[in-house]
Design a binder for these strands. Structure first.
Lengths: 246, 246
DNA sequence: CGTAACCTTGATTAAGATCAATTCTCGTGG
DNA sequence: CCACGAGAATTGATCTTAATCAAGGTTACG
């Protein structure tokens, strides 16, 4: 939980524009943005915020990965999202206060922790953001789109958690990786997925004990569905995997 | 699945303004809105949409209640939300298409069914909505706030589902009803909550078998926490219930 | 190479689902 | 106003999935 606090002066507008939320902004708006943001650095396992903290603002991932999670009374963790480069997180409390009877200070909706060493984040402070972008339709369009996308993700996540068993959830996860992951290689018609998170983190995302995940991965391999070599998973039978995931 | 198709001519602007999403609109904007919307009527158990259907637009509840749910391959249902009067649902696909590489037609994110006879909904068609309100900051502010609120709800829902056992989930539900329900009576320092949904629907929201919910309600009563009389639940020990929910 | 963190495998347990049988509730018609 | 019947809710007995507990292996990294 060190996190140095620098300016974004070294970030040019082209780089800022790569962040999806900001891709439609013009140079003037980007300059404004740069003037209000803070750059933050983290090592692996550094906590970015707890769900008990008062809200400061939202974050963009420049480098590294972030895990968003909840903790139960007796210490069990459930991972809600893995946030990858160029994506934003913790926007929710920014807008909850609007149209709200209560003027309570909102907290972060979950906990966040850096997954990699040298994780680099931009912090966009709530107050300055509203002063500058409070009436900017372009930002709102992006924001609505991004929140909508996340709502559908959570919908699907809940569907997995409540209506599918462990093997279905795992199959579903692997399929999503094949379809959406940046860590994908193709090689004489076979798909290689790189699971770049620990088994424990994957287990906490699938809401399953690490032991059970291990067994299930073993079973998938025994059944010829996949071939595991460390972090790399080769998908041998996409059709069967799809069937399993249903 | 009958659902007649009428205009909103009988709805005055004051009534429309009660819908939270539209409360900030001026009379001109409300007139525009009225001209593009359709009024729909449903009986209990009428399906409003399936998650396989192409998206038409979003809905506002004028009268009655709506259940939003997902179904597993073998028919098990999980309820994501109960939508009550003056609230909107199915806004998500409206905005997913924006900032999206794919120009795929999106489907509804879940299934929706009317819970009461004479449920009355407004359908706001996607296309006309964008033509009229596509650049309206007021609507976007409301929309962002509403989506944010729902995201936190889903966050908390997932937290319940993954990190709490059945008794904790039930206690948590009852507490939320005491704190937020419109169906609340207070009577010499005791709280009466009216559960105006069936046990089966509650069970599907808590992701528990109806039999297990029944047993748990019985246990809460035996333990003196609550007193059940039909749909009315009297909360005898709020402090203990709060402790149980943690 | 050594060691600590991570992962896998095996045996047992427990929470809650499922199956089966009553009982309760409430709307309907006589 | 009461009797009837169907759907809803409860209760009991058993089963299943995945968690937990407890050892071993592996891997990565200094």
């Amino acid at each position: 939980m060190s996190a140095s606090n620098k300016t974004l002066s070294h970030l040019d507008n082209e780089k800022l524009k790569k962040i999806h939320l900001f891709s439609d902004l013009n140079n003037f708006e980007l300059d404004m943005l740069r003037s209000i943001c803070h750059l933050k650095n983290y090592y692996k396992n550094d906590v970015i915020f707890f769900d008990t903290e008062p809200y400061r603002g939202f974050y963009c991932v420049l480098k590294g990965k972030v895990r968003i999670y909840k903790v139960s009374k007796d210490g069990k963790e459930h991972t809600l999202h893995f946030i990858t480069e160029l994506n934003t997180f913790a926007e929710v409390p920014m807008f909850e206060s609007y149209s709200e009877d209560t003027k309570d200070e909102f907290t972060y909706p979950a906990n966040a922790v850096a997954l990699d060493d040298y994780t680099e984040l931009i912090l966009v402070p709530k107050k300055s953001f509203f002063q500058i972008f409070g009436q900017n339709v372009k930002i709102y369009l992006k924001m609505v789109a991004s929140l909508s996308k996340r709502l559908r993700l959570l919908n699907n996540h809940i569907e997995s958690l409540t209506l599918k068993d462990v093997s279905q959830r795992l199959a579903n996860y692997l399929l999503n990786e094949v379809n959406h992951s940046v860590n994908l290689k193709r090689n004489n018609s076979a798909e290689f997925v790189i699971i770049d998170i620990s088994r424990a983190d994957l287990a906490s995302y699938l809401n399953v004990a690490a032991e059970t995940l291990s067994r299930m991965l073993g079973k998938f391999q025994d059944d010829g569905l996949i071939t595991i070599k460390g972090k790399t998973v080769k998908v041998n039978n996409l059709a069967l995997l799809s069937k399993l995931a249903e």
